[in-house]
Amino acid sequence: EETVVIALYDYQTNDPQELALRRNEEYCLLDSSEIHWWRVQDRNGHEGYVPSSYLVEKS
């Protein structure tokens, strides 16, 4: 079962390993094994790492 997370803030990045976030957008959580950086996928299928503190699990 996939976990959906919501971005609390915008996040901009130039790092190809990371993914930009848009506030209030939903993302699919792929990997939360790292404490500070979670791997997520956006609705267009793009994947990357984002700061975990910018996300909240959708209830």
Score class of each variant (00 low, 15 high):
residue 59 S to H: 05
residue 18 E to I: 04
residue 53 S to Y: 05
residue 9 Y to I: 08
residue 9 Y to F: 14
residue 36 H to L: 08
residue 52 S to K: 15
residue 29 L to D: 02
residue 37 W to A: 13
residue 23 R to V: 09
residue 36 H to S: 08
residue 50 V to M: 01
residue 25 E to S: 08
residue 55 L to D: 02
residue 42 D to Y: 01
residue 17 Q to A: 10
residue 29 L to K: 05
residue 10 D to V: 00
residue 13 T to K: 11
residue 25 E to V: 06
residue 59 S to C: 14
residue 48 G to R: 02
residue 8 L to I: 15
residue 1 E to K: 14
residue 21 L to Y: 01
residue 3 T to P: 10
residue 41 Q to W: 02
residue 29 L to P: 00
residue 48 G to C: 02
residue 45 G to R: 06
residue 11 Y to R: 12
residue 9 Y to P: 01
residue 13 T to W: 02
residue 18 E to D: 08
residue 20 A to Q: 14
residue 8 L to E: 05
residue 49 Y to V: 15
residue 38 W to L: 04
residue 45 G to P: 00
residue 59 S to K: 14
residue 58 K to C: 04
residue 32 S to N: 12
residue 19 L to Y: 03
residue 53 S to K: 12
residue 13 T to F: 02
residue 21 L to Q: 01
residue 29 L to Y: 01
residue 9 Y to N: 12
residue 10 D to N: 07
residue 28 C to R: 12
residue 5 V to F: 11
residue 47 E to T: 07
residue 10 D to F: 01
residue 25 E to A: 10
residue 31 D to Q: 05
residue 16 P to T: 12
residue 49 Y to A: 12
residue 46 H to G: 13
residue 28 C to H: 15
residue 7 A to V: 00
residue 11 Y to D: 01
residue 13 T to Q: 09
residue 30 L to W: 01
residue 58 K to F: 12
residue 55 L to A: 00
residue 12 Q to I: 11
residue 51 P to F: 03
residue 16 P to D: 12
residue 25 E to R: 07
residue 18 E to H: 11
residue 8 L to M: 13
residue 16 P to F: 04
residue 54 Y to I: 09
residue 18 E to M: 12
residue 26 E to K: 05
residue 2 E to D: 12
residue 37 W to Q: 14
residue 32 S to E: 07
residue 15 D to G: 15
residue 48 G to N: 00
residue 11 Y to L: 05
residue 2 E to V: 09
residue 53 S to A: 07
residue 40 V to C: 08
residue 29 L to I: 05
residue 38 W to D: 01
residue 54 Y to Q: 03
residue 14 N to F: 05
residue 6 I to P: 03
residue 57 E to F: 09
residue 26 E to A: 06
residue 31 D to S: 09
residue 9 Y to L: 11
residue 47 E to L: 06
residue 12 Q to F: 09
residue 54 Y to S: 05
residue 23 R to P: 05
residue 38 W to A: 09
residue 12 Q to D: 07
residue 56 V to T: 09
residue 21 L to G: 00
residue 46 H to S: 13
residue 23 R to L: 06
residue 4 V to F: 14
residue 6 I to Q: 06
residue 3 T to M: 11
residue 40 V to M: 02
residue 35 I to V: 13
residue 54 Y to F: 04
residue 44 N to Y: 10
residue 30 L to D: 00
residue 30 L to V: 12
residue 14 N to I: 08
residue 31 D to K: 04
residue 15 D to T: 14
residue 13 T to S: 11
residue 12 Q to R: 11
residue 27 Y to C: 02
residue 55 L to V: 14
residue 50 V to K: 00
residue 22 R to Y: 06
residue 43 R to M: 14
residue 24 N to F: 06
residue 14 N to D: 15
